[in-house]
């Protein structure tokens, strides 16, 4: 009787929430893996098993390596600045100045805006002839790149938008983490005569390291999944210079309906993410202090 009730309880509290998780997460992951060994094209009802052809095709295609390179470039150059700017902003906010809440809200506000809407605004700001950025650069007689229409600068434009949107998010987590560092550690350093930079190095960076790890992983997942800004601003162009793995996946699956090829790519993306996350956890033992 008690046992039966226990089972029922579990079914209720675990089973119900697990249904959506199972239907739209675990199960599709498996199906995706299965589809990657087929040549299904979504329209026709039948398909053949093609073994690892999809994988070999992907791993030998230049487009894949191009997209991989773009993904890595994009990830590194969004994660590193997001984290540095986030920490820097949190440090600025730490000093207990008046109007702190106001500044914090301003700095965080980009995060709540829809990426689609803001990408449209940014694509106007990046406009080569009349865009805001180039007009401002013009005042200082700086070079005015073509931004979105030049394959050398398009990715940088996407990166700028992404960092702009996410830095406030990182700031929020760092601000909280900084507020939990005991003040007497700073006082010990004051008594010993540590400089600002030494305090950052010996106190701040080690003590916020768990948050840094958290943010690096979250941002890496975000970066790998970046889509909206690319879709709005460049559609992967010019000349494929902003086509990331995920964008390539989208094009294969929902433009070319090459489901086998797309799911094979999805599996590769999952593997890359998994390996990345694991290696970050592993490496974190060296630099994260709990």
């Amino acid at each position: 009787m008690g046992r039966l009730r226990g089972t029922f309880k579990l079914l209720f509290f675990v089973g119900i929430p697990l249904i959506p998780l199972f239907v739209f997460w675990f199960f599709p992951m498996l199906v995706s893996l299965w589809l990657s060994f087929t040549n299904w094209d979504y329209i026709s009802p039948s398909f053949d098993y093609v073994g690892i052809d999809n994988y070999t095709n992907t791993l030998t295609s230049e487009t894949f390596y191009e997209a991989l390179k773009n993904t890595i470039f994009f990830s590194v150059w969004t994660i590193v600045p997001t984290i540095i700017i986030g920490l820097f902003l949190a440090l600025l906010l730490k000093e207990g100045l008046k109007g702190l809440t106001f500044f914090r809200s301003i700095l965080f506000s980009p995060w709540i805006t829809p990426m689609v809407a803001m990408s449209i605004v940014w694509s106007w700001i990046f406009q080569a002839d009349v865009g805001l950025i180039n007009q401002i650069l013009g005042w200082f007689h700086l070079p005015q790149p073509q931004w979105l229409t030049d394959s050398d600068t398009a990715m940088w434009a996407i990166i700028i938008v992404t960092v702009w949107k996410n830095a406030g998010w990182a700031m929020l987590f760092y601000a909280d983490s900084l507020s939990k560092i005991p003040n007497d550690l700073y006082e010990v350093s004051d008594i010993e005569g540590a400089s600002w930079l030494q305090k950052i190095k010996t106190i701040v960076i080690p003590l916020v390291s768990p948050i840094t790890l958290f943010l690096v992983i979250i941002s890496a997942i975000d970066a790998i999944q970046a889509y909206d800004q690319i879709q709005v601003m460049t559609q992967g162009g010019p000349a494929g210079s902003t086509r990331t793995l995920l964008y390539l996946y989208y094009q294969m699956a929902f433009e070319q309906f090459n489901m086998g090829q797309a799911t094979a790519l999805a599996t590769i993306i999952v593997l890359i993410t998994g390996v990345l996350a694991l290696s970050m956890f592993y490496a974190s033992k060296k630099w994260v202090h709990y």
Partner: peptide
């Protein structure tokens, strides 16, 4: 609640979070 495999369940869910949701799009769409 106490039940068998609780930690395993939580960890596997956390791992799922690490994986890109996009990987599920094709089957989910179907």
């Amino acid at each position: 609640l106490e039940f068998k495999g609780k930690n395993l369940l939580f960890n596997s869910i956390l791992i799922t979070y690490m994986l890109p949701a996009a990987a599920t799009y094709v089957p989910s769409y179907v």
